[in-house]
Simulated scan of single mutants.
Amino acid sequence: MSVVLPTLLGLAIGLAATPASARYLDIEDVRAMAFDKGIVRLEEIELNRRRGIWKVEGDDAYGHEIEMKVDAVTGRIIKLERD
């Protein structure tokens, strides 16, 4: 029991520190992702640090609006919507 408790406490502290110490994708990575998804004109790229999400808005080659949200740590596209 004396070994398990410090280990669990260490894991809990490590997990709590992960979001604050996580490294985010930089803006150039997100721009490249946007272009890969068909955005040809960027209107806005914004990082919400509290949520860890990049928000991207722009237009495709036909003038349709595209909104994309990207997990700033993993690079996973959370939302991709075309209007």
Rank of each mutant, 00 (worst) to 15 (best):
R31Q: 07
R76L: 02
M1G: 13
P6H: 03
A32C: 03
L15S: 12
K55R: 12
E81F: 11
Y24S: 09
M33F: 02
R31I: 11
L11Y: 13
G58N: 02
L9Y: 15
A17S: 14
R51E: 15
E28Y: 12
E67Y: 00
M1V: 15
E28W: 11
A17F: 15
L11P: 09
I53D: 13
P19D: 11
E81P: 08
L80N: 04
V3G: 10
D83C: 00
M1Q: 12
E46D: 11
E44P: 07
A16G: 09
L25R: 07
R49D: 12
I27L: 03
I13A: 10
D71S: 12
R49T: 13
L11A: 12
L8P: 01
A22M: 04
M1K: 06
A32E: 04
R41V: 09
R51Y: 14
G10T: 08
A32P: 04
E81M: 01
L25H: 05
F35K: 00
A72Y: 14
Y24V: 09
E57Q: 05
K55I: 10
K55A: 11
L80W: 07
D36M: 08
E67W: 01
T74F: 04
E67N: 06
G75E: 01
E81K: 15
V70I: 14
R51M: 15
D71Q: 10
A22C: 06
V56P: 00
L25S: 06
R82M: 08
V40F: 02
S21R: 10
V4W: 14
K69H: 09
I77F: 01
D26W: 02
R49Y: 09
G52V: 10
A16Q: 13
S21Y: 05
A32G: 02
R49H: 11
G14C: 09
I13T: 07
G14K: 07
R41Q: 11
I45P: 04
E43G: 02
A32K: 06
L15Q: 08
K37L: 13
E44T: 08
I39C: 07
A61C: 02
E28I: 08
M33W: 00
Y62P: 00
Y24A: 08
H64T: 09
R51W: 13
G10R: 00
K37W: 12
I13M: 03
T7G: 09
V30E: 03
A12D: 08
A22R: 11
R50P: 04
I66E: 00
I27T: 08
K79Y: 14
H64S: 11
G38V: 02
E81C: 06
I45K: 08
R50C: 05
A20C: 13
F35G: 00
I45N: 10
R23E: 04
I66H: 00
F35P: 00
S21Q: 11
V70K: 06
I13N: 03
